[in-house]
Design a protein around this nucleic acid. Structure first.
Length: 546
RNA sequence: GCCCUCGUAGCUCAGGGGAUAGAGCGUCCGCCUCCGGAGCGGAAGGUCGAAGGUUCGAAUCCUUUCGAGGGCACCA
């Protein structure tokens, strides 16, 4: 029995009790069952009596007493105890608990998916690094986290589009092009320009694509260089993201917003909504109507649109493309944007509480990371991947919530012991695969499944962690916190190791294969499946061997 | 000055109203005659930054306060 099944069975009991006149209360749509911290408190516990007792006009303990007998009648429930102020502690019989192992094996990769966010149409924008240089440490955390959030959202039934906004418009593109131009002509880096060896590499690529580029005048060369160098740099960014296991569905060009007139349209549309003012020759969006601390300029007095105007057009594009929920992942250094983005959504006629969500993450650092000379003394993502491995990096970034600053310790990540959580979890997976192979070599097959044979204490613990996996995924999705998945995998891995050390899958050489071995193979394989599914959500591989 | 985030074990951190606040590391003590010891079992370690409040119950929610980090462009 899965916790979800238990939870709906309890809700049914509540409805029965109300129908029988035991008490008068509105039955909530969802009854939460929790894993008690102490094993003495049973397999599952619910505080429903504490929540509803008052509403029913009964002391919680009395409410619990009225419910307990009905709960005890649920098939698969062995016993129900009332504890403390009115907790209901539920113990399942071994067969009901063990049935889960078969459920998981049969569900395979689908185990853990759920419908918590079914019907949600989500646009997730993250990374969006300027195409003027390689990805660096500042983009790393959001690449990992954004991708994992997208994965848990999808696993929970949401329709998700991962989107990368390319800032290919502003003046930085001209400076970028000029930096390459100067490099091609052996001139120094321009004021505010981009240093670093990669500019020379880009110059080489531009030269290959356009051998006569050096002969062109500055005015003629810049647009050509800008385009070629931009394409080469974007390709490089995509390649690095691919190495990191991150794929975007849409790369959205800021330049297109300008060239197609979308920016002007956006200003007009906002004006129609009645939130635009003309002051001192500039066009302003009255974001203070919606909680921003000052109004924002859309079109400067010189007629040039601001970056914010493009943001507005981009937001409207997302809205027009049918995205109900627009999630932005920004670094803490951009948190000043939150209010104006929300105000923008409101000015566009959206509900800032529902249609837009801005996730702010704190910055990260890596102890002892080498600065990249080729990129101008920044720490490149490409180098981090090569140094630490994509798996270790993805997992480390995935196991912390976004809102606390973090420091990565490379010495730890390179260690193959269980203070390195990625190894701990991957090891458990590899070990379970090895155990499975070994068992099959000894003649153990999943030909028999008798859940009542899974009665060992460690099996009970392991099963309960496996059973909670789908709700952990659902929670990770609704809180946008994939680290919950990582933490849960660590619990599963720990429970697996404990089980492994007290219950053999394959029999000893001197003993015959019995049903208990066959049944345990199901549990073993169910564990592999959960670990693999969970690691997949984090973008981390689940190795067969290490 | 205003705004946002964070203060939990020696360290790195979980904990989104519930029972005796958890995990890993580090420290100490144990466990390999057969499926991966890259593991497992146990011990020690806490005024949850502080003070009020909300209620049956607060690390969790609210207010104040102290400390750390970040942000407040007609830049992109």
């Amino acid at each position: 029995m899965t916790p979800d099944q238990l939870s709906s069975a309890i809700a049914a009991c509540l409805r029965d009790a109300v129908a029988a006149g035991d008490f008068e209360v509105d039955v909530p749509s969802e009854v939460r069952v929790e894993r008690p911290k102490s094993r003495e408190h049973g397999d599952w516990a619910t505080n429903i009596a504490l929540q509803l007792g008052k509403k029913a006009g009964l002391p919680p303990r009395r409410f619990a007493e009225l419910l307990a007998d009905r709960l005890a009648g649920i098939p698969g429930v062995e016993s129900v105890d009332i504890a403390g102020p009115g907790f209901l502690n539920i113990r399942l019989d071994a067969a009901a608990a063990g049935e889960l192992a078969r459920t998981i094996v049969e569900a395979g990769e689908a185990y853990g998916t759920n419908e918590a966010l079914a019907g949600h149409v989500v646009n997730m924008e993250f990374v969006s690094a300027n195409p003027t240089g390689p990805l660096h440490i500042g983009h790393t955390r959001w690449a990992a986290l954004g991708d994992s959030i997208a994965r848990v959202l999808k696993a929970s039934g949401a329709e998700v589009t991962r989107e990368y906004y390319i800032n290919d418009a502003g003046n930085q593109m001209n400076i970028f092009a000029l930096s390459v131009y100067n490099r091609l002509h052996g001139l120094p880096v321009p004021d505010g320009g981009y240093p670093g060896e990669y500019i020379r590499e880009l110059g080489d690529q531009v030269l290959r694509a356009h051998p006569g580029i050096r002969e062109l005048t500055l005015e003629a060369a810049i647009p050509v260089i800008r385009q070629l160098a931009y394409e080469a740099q974007l390709k490089d960014i995509k390649a690095t993201l691919a190495d990191f296991g991150v794929e975007f569905d849409v790369y959205y060009s800021e330049l297109e917003l300008h060239s197609t007139g979308a920016v002007e349209d956006a200003v007009d549309r906002l004006r129609e909504q009645g939130h635009v003012d003309d002051v001192d020759g500039a066009v302003w969006l009255r974001t203070t109507d919606f909680g921003d601390d000052k109004d924002r300029v859309l079109i400067r007095a010189n007629g040039e649109p601001t970056y914010f105007a493009a943001d507005a057009a981009y937001y409207l594009s997302k809205k027009d493309r049918g995205f109900e929920e627009k999630i932005y992942l920004l670094g803490a250094d951009h948190h000043g944007y939150v209010n104006r983005l929300k105000a923008l959504a409101a000015a566009a006629g959206d509900d800032p509480e529902r249609n837009i969500e801005v996730l702010i993450g704190q910055l990260m650092s890596v102890n002892g990371a080498k600065l990249s000379k080729r990129a101008g003394n920044i720490i490149e993502l490409r180098d981090l991947i090569q140094w630490l491995g994509a798996d270790a990096l993805r997992y480390s970034l995935g196991r912390y919530p976004a809102d606390s600053p973090m420091t990565i310790d490379p010495e730890l990540l390179k260690r193959n012991t269980n203070d390195n959580p990625v190894f701990y979890v991957q090891y458990a997976h590899a070990r379970s695969r090895a155990a499975s192979v070994n068992a099959e070599e000894k003649g153990v097959r999943r030909s028999v499944f008798d859940a009542s044979l899974l009665g060992h204490e460690t099996e009970n613990e392991l099963l309960s962690h496996l059973g909670r996996f789908p709700s952990v995924v659902a929670q990770a999705a609704s809180f946008r916190e994939p680290h919950r998945v990582a933490r849960h995998l660590e619990l599963v891995a720990g429970a697996y190791h404990r089980w492994y050390s007290s219950c053999r899958v394959a029999p000893l050489a001197t003993e015959p294969v019995e049903d208990v071995n066959r049944t345990r193979l199901w549990l073993n394989d169910a564990t592999s499946q959960v670990l693999a599914n969970g690691l997949g959500l984090l973008g981390v591989s689940a190795p067969e061997k290490m």
